[in-house]
Design a binder for these strands. Structure first.
Lengths: 195, 195
DNA sequence: GTGTCAACTTGACACTATGTCAAGTGACGT
DNA sequence: ACGTCACTTGACATAGTGTCAAGTTGACAC
């Protein structure tokens, strides 16, 4: 799956991801990453100018490793709006646990670090595109609930599939991943599809 | 409304709330609070052992000032489950903007500071109680959608009314407070009430 | 007046984590 | 032999929290 390049840069990214995944996204320091890779803390700064850039690079690295494009094929090729909505929620919802570590770390930096904020916003804007596409497909079928504008429906779906909400249900409330996907699909259908 | 006690302690809490409200919950330092009150930074530690305790006290102070109990009366006295659900979402949803500053600051500390985490969890557990009461009322009327257990319905409603989701729609997407309440009520009704 | 107590001030310091700077080492290619 | 690249070592700046010790000030008691 991964094209293990084994350069120091890639080893740094791998170590970062492992630590973030293990530590639940919190409290991973530059020195932790360095010692895991087996290099000095300062050597990290030869590869990444700062912590925010390292985290952003790590999040792109996850996408590369996990065939983000392939995951979206079922959503893009869905025949109906309803199918597209379910496929989108399935695809993105199942991707969340994979990026969760990095996402949480970036999310935590968002409030203090402007670089981290822009990077996170960029990524989230892409998610909004996915939501908009699903809403548009529903609307094209005449299936969109008329109590919401398509803009509102997009914002709402974007909120529904947020990392925070996944964290809430799957981590804090102990839901299984499968049940999370089921309920989110059901919820979205009941709220967004006209009766 | 507030019983302006004007002790140093109260002036600290007021200043903290004002700064958090103004600064959007981020980047308020102990020294900022001290200089706003007009005392030395060290004097803060004569009243509160640390930043987490100060924030927690500030959040309790908000409750005292804003008649949290009174706000819940319409929800508790609702005649039907449907009414109770709408009243609860209205009451809590309209309280979020008031506590938002403090909530965000506490939320940011949650990942690093265990004291902040327990305090926040306590408060959120109370919110879950409110959600559970609304779900129970629906169930008592036989109106609860049978695709969800009552536990699941509670978790889901708890997620729906989270501070993060309010932030997402009202701050990031620019929804009005009134529209936020409307759509959340609609969403909850469509998802939780049997057809 | 004198004593004392509480609230507050001033200033120094420890700690943690990020990020910077400068000088040095060791392997590898030519 | 020479340079260069990737890395090391160690010192240092900065920001913010929290701690410690030694004052100051004002009110109240006697």
């Amino acid at each position: 799956m991964a094209t293990e390049k084994n350069t120091t840069r890639d080893r740094i990214l791998e170590a970062t991801l492992n630590l973030l995944q293990a530590g639940g996204g919190g409290g991973v320091r530059m020195s932790d990453i360095a010692s895991t890779v087996g290099i000095s803390r300062q050597a990290l700064y030869l590869h990444f100018p700062n912590r925010a850039d390292l985290l952003v690079a790590a999040s792109r690295h996850v996408d590369d490793k996990n065939d983000i494009e392939g995951r979206l094929v079922p959503s893009r090729t869905a025949k109906t709006g309803r199918e597209r909505l379910a496929a989108w929620i399935g695809a993105f919802g199942n991707y969340i646990p994979i990026i969760h570590g990095v996402a949480k770390a970036l999310l935590a930096m968002k409030d203090t670090d402007t670089a981290a904020m822009t990077a996170w916003n960029d990524r989230m804007q892409a998610v909004r595109q996915g939501c908009a596409a699903a809403v548009d497909a529903l609307e094209a079928d005449g299936d969109l609930f008329d109590g919401l504008t398509s803009e509102e429906a997009t914002d709402w779906l974007w909120m529904l599939v947020s990392v925070r909400n996944w964290e809430h249900l799957c981590r804090e409330c102990g839901w299984s991943q499968a049940r999370y996907i089921e309920v989110m699909q059901q919820t979205a259908a009941r709220t967004l599809i006209a009766r």
